[in-house]
Simulated scan of single mutants.
Amino acid sequence: MKRLFLIPLVSLLGFAFVIPISPSWSAGTLQVTSPNGGEKWETGKKYAIKWVKGNAGATVKIQLLESGNYYKWVVKETKNDGKYVWKIPTTIATGSAYKIKIVSTKNKRVFDKSNENFTITEIVGDGGSISVTKPNGGEKWIATRKYAIKWDKVSAGTHVKIQLLKSGKHSLWVSQKTKNDGKYKWSVPTSVATGSAYKIRVISTSNATVKDLSNSSFTVTNGYCDETLRITKPRGGEIWRVGKQYEIMWCSNSGKSVRIQLITSTSSNPYYFNLVRTINEFTDNDGSYTWKVPNSTPKGSRYFIRIKFWGVTGTDDSERFTIYP
């Protein structure tokens, strides 16, 4: 019987094939170091996500996982420099089953995630960790005078901002950043209209959900309110231009509604008055009215505003001002 001997091809040809092996990425050299388990991070605040760069290439992407599943992208591409500062959105739900996963953008097999879960929390609602104590309802503050806005600082962070509200709507920023030390001295501007529907809101600058509002309304006056009615703007000497808007302001302590009129005196007899127009026949007595000067208003330097109460005695005229095209 003949025997067949199989001679390896490499031996037959007298040389061996060298099969090139291209270098491959291997998971494990990229390593998440923070958060890595047990941390407690709060929404609205900034935290540093850290990792060992390893062989992940020039850039990486970062995921937030919840209970091992994708929750959201922290960033879809960032430098592989071992650190990324992340401000946690306030929209992220609180929970204790979060992890961070970092993946090479060049090779998805190169990745790592937190060893253990970390927690994301938030401080919820008005007054949860800050409490306005003054003004808190019933106070009477006079324009140009200084008053102390006070609050219990609790856990609102290092800085807060202070907002003035009128009838529940934004009126102005008292301060857009001040130390969270529980007290701020405020000189009430004369531009604040007289009224009794004001509240103060104090808000953490690091977490907008941490805030509080005066429990009840307080009043702003301009110091003339001991009298029945006094117009405070225009004060006299102003030039108002047609087509522009201007604020008519007054102080009063009685009456629910007023009538506002534009009047002028004649050059021949300054004590003889002409009614130019009724600006508003019936408007709330809230101390302020915005008026757009009609384009048809004649040029003149003897104009004044007259305000009259409805239902009770009281009338006042402003000082003279000019209307100009």
Rank of each mutant, 00 (worst) to 15 (best):
S96V: 08
W25L: 07
G14L: 08
G14Q: 09
N180I: 03
G44Q: 01
I130F: 04
V103C: 04
T219I: 04
V188Y: 06
S217I: 06
V75F: 07
E247S: 15
T322W: 01
G168Q: 06
T133M: 05
S257T: 15
Q261N: 04
Y98M: 02
L9M: 08
V18Q: 14
I200W: 05
P23V: 10
M1Q: 13
F321Y: 03
P294W: 04
K53M: 09
R201F: 15
T278H: 10
L229E: 09
N115R: 04
P23I: 09
S155Q: 14
L64S: 08
K179F: 10
F282N: 15
G82C: 06
D286C: 11
W186N: 06
S129A: 15
K183C: 10
G223M: 06
K134Y: 14
Y246V: 01
K83M: 06
D317Q: 05
K106R: 09
V10P: 02
K211I: 08
I203D: 05
P270A: 15
R3L: 11
E247K: 15
G138C: 06
F15L: 12
Y246C: 08
K108W: 09
S175Y: 02
L6A: 07
G37Q: 03
S204G: 06
Q163M: 11
K2T: 13
K61T: 07
Y324S: 14
S217K: 04
T119V: 12
V103E: 11
K101A: 00
V202F: 11
G128Y: 05
T232Y: 02
R241L: 11
T94V: 10
T90L: 13
K299M: 12
N180E: 15
K87A: 09
T209W: 15
S67T: 12
K166W: 05
Y271M: 10
S206A: 08
T297A: 13
W151A: 08
W151G: 03
F273I: 02
Y271D: 10
V174H: 00
K177W: 08
V293F: 11
E39D: 14
F273C: 01
W51D: 00
K113W: 03
K244Q: 14
L164Q: 04
W41C: 04
S252W: 08
K79T: 09
G82K: 03
Y271F: 09
F218Y: 03
S268D: 15
G137A: 02
K101H: 02
W151I: 08
G300P: 05
S254Y: 02
R259P: 00
K233C: 07
S214L: 04
V32Y: 01
I92A: 03
V210R: 01
S24E: 10
D152A: 12
G236V: 00
I142H: 08
N36W: 00
T313I: 13
S296C: 04
Y198W: 09
S175F: 01
S254C: 11
T313V: 12
I149P: 01
D81K: 02
S216A: 11
N180D: 15
T322H: 00
F321E: 01
V192T: 12
W240Y: 12
N285A: 13
E238S: 01
K185F: 06
D212G: 07
Y198S: 05
A143D: 09
I102E: 00
M1V: 11
S155Y: 06
R302P: 00
K146R: 02
